[in-house]
């Protein structure tokens, strides 16, 4: 309480300055971390090669290509008569991002709606919750080809191809949202619930005025998980579908040439990692913009 009050009271100018300083510090930290990772990578490479250690795996320029090799790979075409790898990858990234974003939106909606229904009807919750948990043990990669066969013919033309992958991304996205939101909806303070009862509030009012606000922090932490899950879903969905337009297709493709040109698979993976982090950061920023409240103190 007092924290929120303090934030409200502090003048906006000071807050803005503080956030600029904080942003710079964070950017510096990110750069530092990236540099440290690169340094660690090369140091590990050098130590293992020069000592000849083979545990846990043999280190050479194929298993761990140099950072600069990977960097140069971005600028070169992967195949003759093609644009530079980075251009190709950016196109594929946009495609995968489209699938992931669609999966994220759909999954978040379905996940939230499901949580609300399950929170309202105890019996449904008892009946369905075990299967919602169980659904995630189904190896989605294994059913992906069948999902594509099933979904694709039923989609309108513009969605064909990537729509099925978005469905797979949805499948991975809805789960954390449902589970966390459900926990959030049930986390409302029992005393506050009793107070609502003294007002003779309807179920609906209790839901929107008490349960949903109480679930928001849980929802946002779920969306952060879901952001990554949607990217994972999109990549996994592309793997067995033979779709060549996305990062998953690129991973399959470059995996076949790994022994000759490992840097291309690495370059693709670096981009995939960046995409996952970008999705995560977007959700975090959206949360900051939507929920104007004292910064989280839980960490």
């Amino acid at each position: 309480m007092s924290n929120a009050a303090a934030v409200v009271r502090s003048p906006p100018a000071r807050r803005r300055r503080a956030s600029v300083v904080g942003g710079l510090a964070r950017a510096g930290l990110v750069a530092l971390v990236a540099a440290a990772l690169v340094g660690f990578w090369e140091l590990y490479h050098w130590v293992w090669v020069s000592t000849g250690w083979t545990w846990p795996f043999v280190v050479n320029d194929t298993s761990m290509p140099h950072v600069w090799t990977i960097y140069h790979a971005f600028g070169q075409p992967a195949q003759v008569n093609q644009p530079a790898l980075i251009n190709v990858l950016l196109h594929k990234t946009a495609f995968t991002a489209k699938e992931a974003a669609a999966g994220f939106g759909l999954g978040a909606l379905i996940g939230f709606a499901l949580a609300v229904v399950l929170a309202q009807v105890r019996l449904l919750q008892r009946g369905f919750l075990p299967y919602i948990v169980g659904s995630q043990t189904v190896p989605i990669l294994a059913i992906a080809p069948m999902v594509v066969l099933w979904v694709n013919p039923r989609l309108p033309g513009s969605l064909q191809g990537w729509g099925a992958v978005a469905v797979i991304a949805t499948y991975l996205t809805f789960f954390p949202v449902t589970i966390n939101t459900l926990r959030g909806l049930q986390s409302a303070d029992p005393r506050a619930l009793e107070l609502m009862r003294t007002y003779a509030a309807s179920r609906w009012a209790v839901l929107w005025k008490l349960r949903v606000p109480a679930s928001l922090p849980y929802l946002f932490s779920a969306l952060r998980l879901a952001a990554t899950a949607s990217v994972v879903g999109a990549i996994i969905g592309e793997l067995p579908t033979g779709l060549q337009d996305g990062l998953g297709g690129a991973i399959i493709n470059f995996n076949q040439y790994y022994s000759i040109e490992p840097q291309e698979l690495w370059a693709t993976n670096v981009i995939a990692a960046a995409l996952g982090i970008a999705f995560f950061v977007i959700v975090v920023l959206a949360e900051k913009a939507i929920v104007r409240r004292a910064p989280e103190e839980t960490a």
Partner: peptide
């Protein structure tokens, strides 16, 4: 922050590299 960022990486994409 490193762990949080790493947590957002689609590790699955690295599966073929572990195979290599």
């Amino acid at each position: 922050p490193i762990f949080i960022a790493a947590n957002a990486v689609p590790i699955i994409a690295f599966a073929p590299i572990f195979g290599a």
